[in-house]
Design a protein around this nucleic acid. Structure first.
Lengths: 160, 160
DNA sequence: CACATAAATGAGATACTATATCATTGCAAG
DNA sequence: CTTGCAATGATATAGTATCTCATTTATGTG
């Protein structure tokens, strides 16, 4: 069993590594990890959960930055476009990516009790969606795979 | 290859059958397919595409019904809860269900060019999500599986 | 360096999506 | 009949996302 967000782990380390990897990748690709973008990624890494754009804006405001909605949405566009963060459609929210930056098709497990989200990597054109697409002659460009349910810890305490 | 929304078909027939099935199912289950709920389902069947709640409201208004947002959202809640319609998370929109009403885990292929949506049925705990869930000890209650791309017709005309 | 260009930011307004609340109505079981 | 529950009507408000335009900052080229 691989490590997931439901496990405990050294969180400071995971923030530092996430930022370092993003910086390295941006330098290599000629992308600009500007202060605003970097800070939003850092917030997502710190919180380690799905956050709404306005949650992020609140954090930015608390830090004295100007924080109109487009500030957050622009940064999030950059981060999601380049794979540093993902959008959780079901929650209208965003999470820092738990993996390397190269192109991937993420799948998410969303705990409805504690709101934590864990990410797994899958083949973009694999599984049911891939099979349905091939049957219909459909060309897949992006996939959304999200499961809502209970994580191991919450399944014990809230069996409802 | 099974029939999909991307194929042509006798659409009048498919509306009539959808409504008839919903009525039969509601009668059997003691559910109330009230005029508002029935009309919203009919609109979704007629349009045969994903519609936002406010698109539906516009149609209702044009027909002279009072149409505050809760009217549409309540009807959509009923329809999605009982499997007569599905929510497309990626589009914040709704489609009539293309299948029987019993519990199912739908997967959707969304054409970004023509906005048509086709539905396939899959196993709720199957595929990548099921595998990831078992590995993490996660209990799946609901799944979202959506692919964005190009349908066969649009792939020819808009290769971009 | 000076300039042209492109990318990013700042700021305000607005559009789109969804829910809370409370009063009222209709239906159905006891 | 009346009690209780489900559904509706209506108003307000919350939450999410984008448009537009002016300004600044970085980059590259002569």
């Amino acid at each position: 069993m691989t490590r997931t967000a439901f496990d405990t782990h050294d969180h400071g380390d995971c923030i530092a590594r996430g930022l370092a990897e993003a910086e390295r990748y941006c330098a290599a690709q000629g992308l600009r990890l500007t202060p605003a973008r970097r800070r939003v990624l850092e917030i997502l890494l710190e919180e380690h959960r799905a956050m709404g754009a306005y949650d992020i804006l609140e954090r930015l405001r608390a830090e004295g930055r100007g924080a109109q909605p487009p500030i957050a949405y622009r940064a999030l566009d950059f981060l999601t476009t380049h794979g540093f963060a993902h959008r959780i459609e079901r929650l209208n929210a965003f999470v820092a990516c738990a993996h390397a930056q190269d192109l991937h098709a993420p799948a998410f497990l969303i705990c409805r009790a504690c709101d934590r989200v864990t990410e797994a990597e899958v083949a973009p054109t694999g599984g049911e969606l891939g099979r349905a697409a091939r049957a219909a002659g459909f060309t897949i460009e992006r996939t959304v795979r999200e499961a809502v349910g209970l994580c191991p810890a919450c399944a014990e305490t809230s069996p409802a």
